[in-house]
Structures are given as C-alpha cells and as structure tokens.
Design a protein around this nucleic acid. Structure first.
Lengths: 245, 245
DNA sequence: CGGTTGATTGACCGTTATCAAGCATCGTGG
DNA sequence: CCACGATGCTTGATAACGGTCAATCAACCG
C-alpha cells in the first residue's frame, strides 16, 4: 500500500517527520475505506469497540444522548482527524458517531496501537499529544458553554472552525463551508435550533457575518475574537520533547 | 527514595502492575513536595510549563477566565491525580491551577516523560489511558452543562464525586467531604453561587441529600442516577491492550 | 407533485442571572 | 478575649436570556 492511500500517514506526518520504519508501520495498518450517507450512525454509545477511523472526506461528529430527546454533540470531526482514540482506554464506546454529510472513513484496528506503543516511542508521544490537544478543545468548549451568551458561543464556534480549517488550508480567507444544520449547531453549543436561528440573524444584522449557500463569511473576525476572548490553540504544539525515533 | 514517598508509583500502580524497572524509573523522578495554602494559584494560564504534579493531599482545581470576571472551572483534582499532563503537548499552560484547601503537591519535571515514553511502552500506554479517561470526564461535564437543569447538574456533580472517591476508598458510604465553596461549584457547573444555594436547598427539601459540617450525604442515590442518567465511567478501564513491559 | 427536512418567525413562559441586603462563621490582631 | 473584617451562605425582588410551542415557508428529492 502506497503512502498516497494511507490516511494515517498523511495525518500524522503533518505534525512530525516520520522515519521510513514508522511510515511502513502505519501504512500496514489500514485496510480499506468505507462510505457513509448523511446522518448515519457509524457506531453507537456502549457498542464494543475494536477499531478506530481516520476521516478521509466529509464532516462527522460525536454525541451523547439524554432521556427525553436531549442531545449533546461533543466533537466535530474533519478530514484528517482520528476518530475513536478516546475509546481505546475503555471497553465500550463513550459516544455515538454520526455524519453531517456523506463521509468516507478509513478504519484501522485498535490492536494496531499496541504495536505502535511497543515499537515507536515517537509515535506514542504523538498519539499522546493528539489526545491532550483534544482535551484543550474540550476545555474551550466547556468555557463557551458555561460562561458565554448564545452570540458569544456561535462566534466562538466559527472562530474555532476557521482556525482549524486554516491548519490544513492556510490559504483560506474569511469564508468557509458549514455543512451543519442549525439543530446540530445548537446541540454542540447547548442551545436550541430556534435560538440559533434568531441569534444568527442578529449577528448578520450586526455585521459580524454573512450567510448563504451553505457557507459562512466572517466580516469582523477581530471583533469576534475580542467578543469571545478567543485564543487559537492549534498553533503551539510542542514537539520538542518527543523521542527521536 | 522508597516507594512510600513516591506519589507517582502509588498512583500508577493502582491501574497496572509495574515491574521493578518501571518502579525505579518513576521513583527517580520525584524530588520534593510542596505545600500550598487555601485559594492559592500554583501556576497561571499562559505560564511556561516545565513540570507536572501528583496531588498528595487536598483538593485542587483547574480553571480558565473570561473578561469581566467570569470563570469556568474545568477539572477537580483529588489526591492521587496527576496535574498538568495536558500541557505537556503545549508550550504554555492552558489553565490556571488553584487550591480549594491546603494542598500538598509532588512536582516532577516534564522531561521525565521523555524517558518514560522512550523506555517503557507499558507506562506510555498508561499515560495515554489517563489522558483519554480525562476526555471522558470532560464529555460528561459537557453533557451536564449543555443539556441539564441546575438540579440535574448538581446531582451529576455529587454522583461523579462519590464514584471517584469510591475508587480509592471502596468502603465509602453515602457521605463525603466537600471542600468546595458554592461559588466554586457554580463555576464548575456553569451556574451562579446564588442559584447553587437555592438549588441545594430545594434538593435538600426534596430529600435528595443532607448537608452539614462541610459534608454531603446522598439520601436517594438511585433517584439521582435516574434523574441525571448517570453512568459511572471509572470502572471500565481496558488495560488488555497494554504492552507487556 | 407530495412528503420530508430545515429555517424562520412570533407569542408566551420559565429557568436562571443580577442586584442587594442580611446573617453566620472564622481567623486575626489589638 | 473581644472586636473587626473578610469570606461564604441565604433570601427576596426583579429582569433577562433563552426555551417551548406552533405555524409558515423554502428547498430538496424521490
């Protein structure tokens, strides 16, 4: 299997330079790819978990349910992201994985991690870093949900999305595609679809953004950063402590 | 330095059996211990980070600030917990660490992780597991903040605390010490101190709990579990995939 | 063309925040 | 040993933010 077809190598080599052994180890892991339609559950909470995924195409998200239909989306997954790392430590899935649009995933077995940890300290450090960086994202979201108004939360979401998309696409301007329904945005930010709709309209009227054609354009990014006290956590990964190999 | 004085060995050997080499590696890491008074900041957000801590005594917590005085507590740290693992991946602290009561911490240098990852796949797996389990805790908190009422949130907090305390003290009954102010509870759950006070009173009147003397007693734990749809995530750690050494 | 999904809008309501005052507790210093 | 200030908890009045419910509309797709 060539590098071209290995999502995992592409993903990880974005962060660190990988030696030929590591590349070979990773390329061996992936088998096939699978396609999922919009709004499909890939796995469900409490399922037994035997595999992880790398997102090749499309947006997905992880969520948890409450009785009487309440739902909390806890993670948005973009192309290049690793899904399911969290559940490696558990016997069962801690969240349900669903798709926001047509999605292509590259699965690989949980047992592959064993191999990585045993044979590559450098990749082990990288996996740990990825898990820890995800923690920072959770903390940002917690801060938004606990202490921000609806408008601030939506502003935070958009700033975070655009910061994240700029990692893989540095040429991106102030406009990005948003393949989420307002109900999904609400479930992510702890609001309701109705109030998301109303707040988006207000923000548009205030000149913070423009919408249309499934896209969002941030007109006053600096003002939004000020409003939400936003810090971009995606650009200060410290790899200096990584083992050499 | 004997095992008795190594917080880290005690902490980690609770999860996996450690070989003598691993024990020696860990014991070497710790230097001294430090004491902090109640309501002291140990380190602050954006500080450069060079060390981690193990909690030897007392409760601490990590928080982030917002402009105009809003604060979100994101993690509660109990004796035995490792603090600061998250920031290993970053150049700077992502949260501020503060104490809820007099606290004793055992610091050890960040550079020690390098050694662990290079030399012990088994400890690497354990560190990764700890980071991933913390993710599950963040998800539980997100669910509470996004989709629960004030009463449910407080119920969730107490259930989570008692489940966590039972790990290290299986003989614990329905009563636990709670060295947090109501303002701190509010900052953790995304509420205000005033409303925490009112909600606690209501819950007491409904017979869910009793308070007094800095302690809480849960009278109808089953009812609270039902109310909050609580799942104890502290007892299904999967270590089967760990490397042998 | 009809059915489904998602966005919008308006009326109304409830949970929780805000503000302010009062009270208990506790540690400290005179 | 008492007085004082600081801290934390309680309580009440008021207000706002966001939820709920329901109707309408647009877009899409089979």
């Amino acid at each position: 299997m060539t590098d071209r077809s290995s999502c995992l190598v592409m993903k990880l080599s974005r962060y660190v330079t990988l030696g030929p052994e590591d590349r070979a180890r990773l390329a061996k892991i992936e088998k096939t790819e699978r396609n999922y339609a919009t709004h499909t559950d890939v796995y469900r909470l409490a399922d037994r978990n035997t595999e992880l995924f790398v997102v090749k195409e499309g947006w997905a998200f992880s969520y948890v349910d409450m009785p009487n239909g309440r739902r909390q989306i806890v993670q948005l997954h973009h192309p290049g992201d690793i899904i399911g790392l969290r559940d490696v430590a558990l016997n069962c899935r801690s969240t349900t994985l669903s798709t926001a649009e047509p999605v292509t995933l590259c699965p690989f077995p949980k047992s592959a991690l064993d191999l990585i940890l045993r044979e590559s300290p450098r990749l082990s450090a990288l996996l740990l870093s990825i898990a820890l960086r995800e923690q920072v994202t959770f903390i940002d979201l917690l801060r938004a949900m606990g202490r921000m108004s609806a408008e601030e939360r939506i502003g935070y979401l958009f700033l975070d999305l655009i910061a994240r998309l700029r990692i893989t696409n540095p040429s991106m301007t102030d406009t990005f595609r948003l393949p989420l329904t307002q109900s999904q945005i609400a479930d992510y930010l702890g609001l309701t679809n109705v109030y998301v709709s109303k707040t988006l309209l207000q923000m548009e009227q205030k000149g913070y953004l423009q919408r249309g054609d499934g896209k969002v354009r941030l007109l006053r990014e600096e003002a939004l950063i000020e409003l939400t006290d936003f810090t971009n956590h995606y650009d200060d990964l410290d790899t200096s402590w990584f083992p050499d190999k």
